[in-house]
Design a protein around this nucleic acid. Structure first.
Lengths: 207, 207
DNA sequence: ACCTGAACACCGTTCAAGT
DNA sequence: ACCTGAACACCGTTCAAGT
């Protein structure tokens, strides 16, 4: 056996990442295996290890792809400029992405950092980009002279984490409850109430 | 081979659950295997399947144990009655439990429902119990005549999900940021600001 | 009745051997 | 230079066979 010129390394990387993406979308992370990916792309399992350090590394690449597509979606929504408050629009867009592909999105929720290592910088940067979108939407809600940069960053992180928690519990079906408010209602309540609290604080100069 | 009278079935169940608990605390869910558990308790792997339907079932039992111990911890805190607001105390207690045993706690965050099945009722009940603690703490913050039962349940769920998101992202190290507010600061901000918003709404009769 | 251990159908990962 | 496929050390789960 030997070299095949059918795919350049970049093409092959793309094929492999897409195959992994599809498997996870269908069967979740549990359904993913190096052998199954190899089967789908028509190469042997060993070849994956020419392209990626490990399966964990490959999964991280899929996560990066997802974060990028989420970011693009949020950018679209930001550009829309409908009557709604920008933050609610962001929140609802985020939620709808999670609900369209729950198994894919679960990756970001469930994937703890592999063993002893750190979150790679390119991954953190993508998270930062998402938080930055929330920050800029926040800045349009609160007069900037009333809320310093650190307070905005803090609030943006709280909003991001809250959305994450709501989406995460919702896709895991751990948020049902008796009265059964939908996640959408909970997200709207969260954003509106937190913002109301923030405006109140700004008004009385507590920040 | 054959029967051993060294342990009653209940004792053995307890030993197995504790062994699984310990393995997860040390190495995370990835380190768990039926064979390793069997090794630690000194039985063969097959024996586990006399006691549990599957590894997933066993893991769910560990989660139940964790939710119970979290509930006991919150009950203690509730009884304390220090000067702090009860909700902040609950939130900080919850956070400290997560931070003491991040790998164990990650179970609850990362464990999606196995394949096609539902969350078992005894599991949902335990989640309900936690949310109920938040509800009763909330009721002490807001005059009950100003906030109906459904609104309290909604707010309790939002608070619970927000805490979950903050704890989850924090243990996954995905919340770091530039200015580096600690999770404690973020949790305090979340609870205080959301509550402020809630009080504001109550005051102007929006609910 | 309870427990074992071999067996089945899988894994992730490595690496000599091939083209 | 790139790819294979056998090999290694693992999995979860089942079940005939043993006491």
């Amino acid at each position: 056996m030997g070299r095949r010129s059918t795919h350049t390394p970049e093409q092959l990387r793309g094929l492999v990442i897409r195959a992994a993406h599809d498997i996870i979308a269908e069967d979740g992370l549990a359904g993913l295996s190096a052998r199954e990916i190899a089967r789908r792309v028509g190469y042997s399992p060993g070849t994956l290890y020419n392209l990626f350090d490990s399966l964990d590394d490959l999964v991280l690449q899929v996560e990066a792809m997802l974060l990028d597509s989420l970011d693009r979606r949020l950018a679209e929504v930001e550009a829309e400029g409908t009557a709604d408050e920008p933050l609610s629009r962001l929140a609802r867009a985020y939620l709808s992405v999670c609900r369209e592909h729950p198994k894919l999105w679960n990756l970001i929720a469930e994937h703890a950092i592999p063993r002893g290592s750190e979150v790679p910088p390119w991954y953190s940067e993508r998270l930062e980009r998402l938080v930055a979108r929330i920050e800029s939407a926040l800045a349009r809600h609160i007069p900037p002279d009333r809320l310093d940069a650190q307070a905005i960053e803090r609030s943006a992180r709280v909003l991001w984490a809250g959305l994450h928690g709501l989406a995460s519990l919702s896709t895991a079906d751990k948020l049902s409850g008796i009265t059964g408010d939908s996640v959408e209602v909970l997200v709207d309540d969260f954003v509106a109430t937190y913002l109301a609290g923030l405006r109140g604080k700004v008004r009385i100069g507590r920040i």
